[in-house]
Design a protein around this nucleic acid. Structure first.
Lengths: 220, 220
DNA sequence: CTAAGATATGAATGATCCTTCAGTTTTGGA
DNA sequence: TCCAAAACTGAAGGATCATTCATATCTTAG
């Protein structure tokens, strides 16, 4: 949809003085604010600069164009999520099926909820620019980590850990996204917090059962 | 984010002659095509008109503005999905838990896959304009239908059918969306087709188990 | 066949926006 | 203190776009 040369998307220069670091940070948060209050379609370089208390030219000193700015935001946010999930999986290594299922769900929810604002903002960018490359890179890492985590579950043998991991990321990512985009109904979030861990557990129990007769042994 | 007077979003007039009906249809499909090839951000009234083989003015005879055009597209697509799901739930009334779970999953997949193009296009619109009202209306209908469907399952008592229905729509809608947006990898679709029904079944079995001791009786 | 209504045209308008760059201000080391 | 590098400024260029409206063409009832 939109695949410009990659050099055109990287930041122009890194801040050397303290003040410019502050500026970059200001631009960063201003972008997210504008993204939320006005939407991607109304996100303007001028508007961002204004909100950041900076002139447009300054913005272009750090980002070669608007898209680069947005990509930087996405990348940072994606990194946050991925590392959060990676540390979560580390902590779950070797735990039983129920702990793993619920651990993954709550870790994901926590990571997303920690910065609902940024998360929601990113969903907006995704529509306008082609983020599939960035997203896929993150997805691959996650699927791999979860897959090996599933292999290490002591109380269950999952038939196809890769498929299961793939499906888990789709379930986690998708459901949270849908609910977040739908609105701010605190009710819905509460339900999600309650049901998402169950959904993960239910799915894992099922794919763990399949090869041999089902017993649904896991903790209950 | 974007909440204009509703009258400004309704079509201006309905075609009276055959030729205008053709025109409207052409505009409709052209919009989707442009949406896919260029993205929402590059969707231009001129571009749409060109693609439809029509002049810009013609477009404005039927839609008061660009947003109205996009809303019309979304509404139509949403209707398709909802009615598809409603007929599916009708057919599942009274069936056992496994049939219901798998029936819902495959119905959803079928509805979305039937017109991947339009579905994907809509995901794009969602970011730019506030579709939460339209989406919510559809969601409410679906949740209600699924909830009552769950109540009628003979071989299981679901503790909180409303929550379960809510969660099911989130799982279905979210996972399919995520996979569709990620790219066109046929592999992923295949996995989804295989795993989504299981995910639904696993979740339902779990929430059906909970109140009293679990036995995981359902068909296997 | 004809007029009235329906439909289509597309240049012009006015607005918005991204990006640049010549010039100014600030910083930090010598 | 002084200056070269680093940061910052914002008006202006150049491009795109949504929307309008005066005009032209088509359709159909009578």
């Amino acid at each position: 949809m939109n695949r410009p040369a990659p050099d055109l998307l990287k930041p122009r220069k890194t801040p050397r003085q303290m003040r410019s670091a502050v500026t970059v940070e200001a631009i960063h948060t201003a972008t997210i604010q504008v993204l939320l209050s006005d939407g991607v379609g109304r996100l303007t370089t001028t508007r961002v600069a204004e909100r950041a208390g900076v002139s447009v030219g300054t913005m272009y000193q750090y980002y070669p164009n608007k898209q680069a700015l947005l990509f930087a935001i996405v990348e940072r946010q994606l990194d946050l999520i991925v590392t959060a999930m990676l540390t979560a999986t580390e902590g779950l290594e070797g735990r039983d099926l129920q702990s793993v299922a619920e651990g993954l769900a709550t870790a994901w929810l926590e990571a997303k909820m920690a910065d609902v604002v940024s998360s929601r903002a990113i969903y907006g960018i995704a529509a306008e620019f082609d983020l599939s490359e960035l997203m896929n890179r993150a997805k691959v890492i996650l699927v791999e980590a979860i897959s090996s985590l599933l292999r290490a579950v002591p109380d269950a043998r999952i038939a196809d850990p890769d498929s299961a991991a793939f499906m888990l990321t789709a379930l986690l990512g998708g459901s949270v996204r849908v609910v977040m985009e739908a609105g701010t109904a605190e009710d819905d979030f509460e339900r999600l917090r309650q049901e998402l861990p169950r959904a993960c557990l239910g799915y894992l129990q099922l794919v763990a059962c399949e090869p041999s007769g089902c017993a649904c042994r896991s903790g209950e």
